[in-house]
Write a protein that binds this DNA or RNA. Sequence first.
DNA 1: CCAGTAATGTTATAATGTTACATTATCCAG
DNA 2: CTGGATAATGTAACATTATAACATTACTGG
Lengths: 153, 153
Amino acid sequence: MNPAAIKRVMQRAEALCRERGVRLTQQRRTVLELLIASEKPLSAYDLLDRLRESVKNPAPPTVYRALDFLMQQGLIHKLESIHAYVGCTHPDHPHAGQFLICADCGEVEEVQDPRVTESLQAAGQAQGFRTHRPVVELLGVCAHCRHSKTETD
Amino acid sequence: MNPAAIKRVMQRAEALCRERGVRLTQQRRTVLELLIASEKPLSAYDLLDRLRESVKNPAPPTVYRALDFLMQQGLIHKLESIHAYVGCTHPDHPHAGQFLICADCGEVEEVQDPRVTESLQAAGQAQGFRTHRPVVELLGVCAHCRHSKTETD
DNA sequence: CCAGTAATGTTATAATGTTACATTATCCAG
DNA sequence: CTGGATAATGTAACATTATAACATTACTGG
């Protein structure tokens, strides 16, 4: 993401936290910025490594606490299938997107398809199930990687 | 699952492996049976503990290899969001189901909703994405637990 | 039987995540 | 502005999940 876009998302995050009366502290802000700026999802320990530049001696709880906070605020998402985290690009309303995860280049596309959302809700309701957190992650190969390789469809 | 049903699923697994020319060895069979018989999903280390009854000194690779094989054959599913595994109850055709995971009682329901399957495929195709493995897990509360607690809807 | 492949044994270690308790920062009522 | 409560962070140890690397054993087909 380009610097202007990063700044815009960060400002939106600031505003949201202010509205909600929660504190986007320096560490939380740093973790969020690392995720927003990254092309690819980062693991907790990736983040831990990168935090060494700005924090003296970061330990796992430092990162996990920041991640927990950011997830509670809907500012980032956790990708369960690859144990990594991505910044949310449109955190205004709470949502649980669907993620297209490329096994080749590692990039992730977040989409939010109403048909998917609705059909999942319906599938749960048919069983009397109350969904708190849907996890929808498609592991595969993105358009770019499919075309750059000699992939026969 | 009752003993008769377990036996039926195991025989189906035997037959499938025979057809495919792959070996359902004793260890693999044991792991599969443990999963089929369990009400709830089991972690790799749950399985490791239970294997001590039939194997002398099982180590993690023993379990993970069996799990890899069984997943390849579509006989079990991995639940990414809870790091656990469940037996597949209808393994005849390869498929990737959707899982309703109750945070309360721990039980898991596997469903296969055509609308979900189709809408996910469409969502991927809209991005030019080729899905190899869809991960669809709804974390929430099952009908039974919703009713047994004083849960206000 | 023999050679090749598949499966398993064994040890160590990597990667991910949590607990528990001490310390510091912030907030806000008086 | 101060003191007490709450929130956030520091720190060390540890728990859980998963893999690497290499040796050994079992099976299969000629």
